Amino acid sequence: MNSFELNKIFGAVLGVLLFVVGMSVLSDMLFSPEPAGVAGYALPMPEGVETEVAEAAPAEVPLPILLASADVGRGETAVRKCASCHSFNEGGANGVGPNLYDIVGGAKAHLDDFGYSSALAERGAAGELWGYDELYGFLANPRGYLPGTSMAFAGIRSGQERADIIAYLASITENPPPLPEAEADAGAESDAAAAQ
């Protein structure tokens, strides 16, 4: 096959491609799709009726109930995501974050050899402690709980996972404070919810 035959074949293929692209452009110019209108019609609202429907937020389980069902093993597994910044063994080295051994019930900014953010150092100097509620709130949203903290962590959404982590931290605390007790009303509500 000589080069003249190949040129004719390539020319034919190029011509077909050019024809297809040209037809596509021409059809787009001639036929433009119209957006669909609003489906249905608006119903009149009776006067005095709220137009916004409040969504029922799921009832949050109280911390004492979560702690009562917390699992130290699951908490130990969950803190692996924290191990890149923190250590958890007695006398462990500080990383980007402080060593968290013996933290439950301990003072905020509890280590002398770690450079805490000024927000946390001020709370530690004021004598604040890391109780169960404080740890629960901090683990949910560190920057929301303690504005000015240098901890760059988004937080843990699951309340049960936070309770598991707190249970693990309490297990590596020499003298952890007693677990908070559920209020009688909260216990009755959880029993009623379980019965449904």
Rank of each mutant, 00 (worst) to 15 (best):
E47D: 15
D191W: 01
C85Q: 03
K8E: 13
R143W: 00
D164K: 09
A56G: 10
I165R: 04
A68K: 13
E55I: 12
A68E: 15
Y41R: 13
P142K: 09
G127C: 08
I156H: 01
A42W: 03
D112A: 15
E5H: 12
D191E: 13
V61E: 11
G15P: 04
G48N: 10
P178I: 03
L100V: 05
V61P: 05
D102S: 08
A93W: 00
N2R: 07
S190R: 15
S3Q: 14
G127T: 10
Y136L: 07
Q196M: 13
A78D: 10
P178W: 03
L26T: 12
L139R: 04
P142T: 09
S69M: 13
D112V: 11
G105C: 03
A54V: 15
L67Q: 03
T173K: 02
E47T: 14
H110E: 06
P177K: 01
E47M: 13
D28P: 00
E50Y: 00
L169E: 01
N94G: 09
D133P: 09
L179Y: 08
S27G: 10
L67S: 02
V53Q: 11
V20N: 06
G92T: 12
V21S: 11
S3K: 14
S69R: 14
Y132E: 07
A193F: 09
Y116Q: 06
C85I: 03
E161K: 13
F114P: 01
A167F: 06
A107G: 14
A154R: 14
M29Y: 13
L120P: 01
A140S: 12
N89T: 15
G75T: 11
N89G: 11
S171T: 07
A12P: 04
A121D: 10
S118E: 15
T149A: 11
A39R: 10
A126T: 08
E183N: 04
R80Y: 11
V79D: 03
P62Y: 03
S171C: 02
L146G: 00
L17N: 09
L30D: 02
A195P: 02
L100D: 02
L139A: 07
F153C: 00
A78Y: 09
P180F: 05
E90R: 15
E47C: 05
V49Y: 03
A167C: 07
L129Y: 01
R123Q: 11
A68Q: 14
D28C: 08
K8Q: 14
L67H: 03
K81P: 00
Y132W: 06
M29V: 14
E174P: 00
E122P: 00
L63H: 08
A57E: 13
K81M: 12
E5W: 09
R162K: 08
W130V: 03
T173E: 06
Y41P: 00
P147A: 06
R162V: 04
P178F: 02
I166E: 01
L43K: 15
A194C: 06
A56W: 12
G187Q: 14
P147M: 07
L129G: 05
D112P: 09
P62Q: 06
D185W: 11
P64L: 07
F114L: 04
